[in-house]
C-alpha cells in the first residue's frame, strides 16, 4: 500500500501543496473557483517555518495507534484500513478539540468545510485524498510538490524498520520486557518528535 512520505529536508517552503490541498478539498475542485467558494476550503497540510526558517510540510501521519482517535469524545475518528487512513466523520464530530490536545504533530484545524454539513464547524485534517485515490489519482500535495519533499510510495520493510528502530532507540526507558502495543502510543509521540528532530 502506498503512503505519503514527508521528507522535510527537501522542502523549500513554496506552499504549493497548501494551495493544491485546499483546491482538492473544495466543492469545485479547482483552485480558481475554489477561492470564491463559501465556506472557503482550507488546506490540510501546513507549511510552517522550521528552526532555521526553512519550510516544514506538516500533515497528518495517520498514526497507528492514533492518539487523536483515542481522545475523540464521540468516536468520530476512525481508521479506514484499506488505505491506512485516519478519518474524521463530520456528522459525528462535535468540535470539542479533544483531538487538538492529543495530536503530537498539531495538524488538526477547526472550521466550516465545504465537505461537511453546511454551517457546522468541525475538525479537519488530511484524508490522504481518498476521493482522488478512488479515481486513480495520487494525493494533490504530492502531485504538486516539485522538490520531492512529499512522495507517494510503498513504505517498504526497510523504511518501516528504520522508523521503528528510531522510535525504540529513543524510547529505551519504555519497559523493554513489554515489547508491546501499549507503548506504541508513546512511540507515536516519540516518533513525531524524532522525525521533527531529523528534519535538520
Amino acid at each position: 500500500m502506498k503512503e505519503v512520505i514527508v521528507h522535510p529536508e527537501r522542502c523549500v517552503g513554496c506552499m504549493q501543496c497548501m494551495l493544491a490541498c485546499a483546491a482538492a478539498h473544495s466543492k469545485t475542485g479547482t483552485l480558481i473557483s475554489a477561492i470564491s467558494e463559501s465556506p472557503r476550503p482550507g488546506p490540510r497540510i501546513h507549511v510552517g517555518a522550521g528552526l532555521y526558517n526553512e519550510g516544514f510540510p506538516n500533515r497528518c501521519r495517520h498514526c497507528n495507534p492514533a492518539p487523536c482517535q483515542m481522545a475523540c469524545l464521540p468516536g468520530a475518528i476512525y481508521r479506514q484500513t484499506t488505505t491506512n487512513t485516519v478519518l474524521i466523520n463530520p456528522d459525528v464530530c462535535i468540535n470539542c478539540a479533544s483531538c487538538a490536545m492529543a495530536c503530537p504533530y498539531g495538524v488538526i484545524r477547526y472550521h466550516a468545510d465545504p465537505l461537511a454539513p453546511a454551517g457546522k464547524t468541525i475538525a479537519v485534517k488530511c484524508d490522504n485524498c481518498i476521493a482522488r485515490q478512488h479515481k486513480g489519482l495520487i494525493p494533490a500535495c504530492v502531485e504538486v510538490c516539485k522538490t520531492g519533499a512529499l512522495t507517494f510510495e510503498e513504505m517498504d520493510a526497510a523504511m518501516k524498520k528504520k522508523t521503528d528502530q528510531v522510535a525504540r532507540s529513543i524510547c529505551a526507558e519504555a519497559v523493554p520486557a513489554d515489547n508491546a502495543p501499549g507503548f506504541s502510543l508513546l512511540n507515536t509521540i516519540k516518533r513525531a518528535q524524532k522525525e521533527i528532530n531529523l528534519s535538520r
Partner: peptide
C-alpha cells in the same frame, strides 16, 4: 510549528 520544537 512543530519543527521549531526540538533544537540541537
Amino acid at each position: 510549528n512543530v519543527s521549531r520544537l526540538i533544537g540541537r
